[in-house]
């Protein structure tokens, strides 16, 4: 599903190149649950941003579902966002002025889903996440864990094939974090959704099927997680 070839990212400052990513090549298949780990400054978030097409690599090739996306125009990229990619952020990034239901509905609006179907899909998702009672609340009326649940619900409602999550539990306490990870695992296993997350936590990484260790912009280790832990 995803193929990275020789991805490089650097910033040139007064002629000195400071590398964020070097020679990153990897293949991620449909249905994998990949955790990107590494110390601060290793390039984890940059790699995720490149995967999410929020940043462009300085060099290298990136194919998403068989399509070269490095040179993709804005319209095509927006199409990918609408149909294939869901984002989950560390700081949740819900829209403060929208209620829970409206936040979840937003991606469907941009996808131009009909009103009746929007209603039913939002209702489904709310039901699945046990948030029907909270649908008319605003984000600041929810706890952090609940906000992140809404964030994931919003990412899921458009039925993406991949979820990109940047430290999804970074702002959460451990019981809530566990709940989110369980959810990710379930989505991955039951619905075959590809998940790529950046995380600091070994515990979280263990939920996945594969771990990429980054150090100074280079993939040091690429290991499969033994299942059934």
């Amino acid at each position: 599903m995803i193929e990275l070839k020789n991805i490089e990212k650097y910033y040139a400052n007064k002629g000195v190149k400071s590398y964020i990513l070097r020679h990153v090549s990897t293949i991620i298949k449909q249905g994998e649950f990949v955790s990107i780990m590494g110390p601060s400054g290793a390039g984890k978030s940059t790699l995720l941003n490149i995967l999410g097409m929020l940043e462009e690599p300085t060099y290298g090739a990136y194919e998403f579902m068989g399509e070269d996306v490095v040179s993709l125009n804005e319209r095509k990229r927006i199409e990918l966002y609408r149909n294939h990619i869901g984002f989950v952020f560390q700081a949740y990034h819900l829209i403060d002025e929208m209620t829970v239901a409206e936040n979840i509905e937003a991606p469907l609006l941009y996808k131009k889903v009909s009103s009746a179907e929007r209603k039913s899909r939002v209702a489904d998702v709310l039901d699945r996440f046990n948030m029907v009672a909270k649908k008319d609340l605003f984000p600041n009326q929810l706890s952090g864990g609940q906000q992140q649940l809404v964030g994931i619900a919003r990412a899921l409602v458009a039925q993406p094939s991949i979820i990109l999550a940047d430290e999804p539990t970074g702002n959460l306490q451990s019981p809530q974090a566990l709940q989110i990870m369980e959810l990710f695992k379930k989505l991955n296993e039951e619905e075959n959704i590809t998940i790529i997350q950046v995380t600091h936590s070994e515990v979280n990484a263990a939920y996945g099927s594969r771990i990429l260790h980054l150090l100074d912009g280079v993939i040091k280790e690429d290991i499969a997680v033994p299942q059934g832990v």
């Binding site: 999410g52 929020l54 804005e74 319209r75 927006i78 966002y81 609408r82 984002f87 990034h93 819900l94 829209i95 403060d96 002025e97 937003a106 991606p107 941009y110 996808k111 919003r154 458009a158």
Partner: peptide
Amino acid sequence: AKETGVRKVLGAARSN
């Protein structure tokens, strides 16, 4: 700004 960024990754085009 945050709202704008979020809307963009949710699939909002600039014209939206």
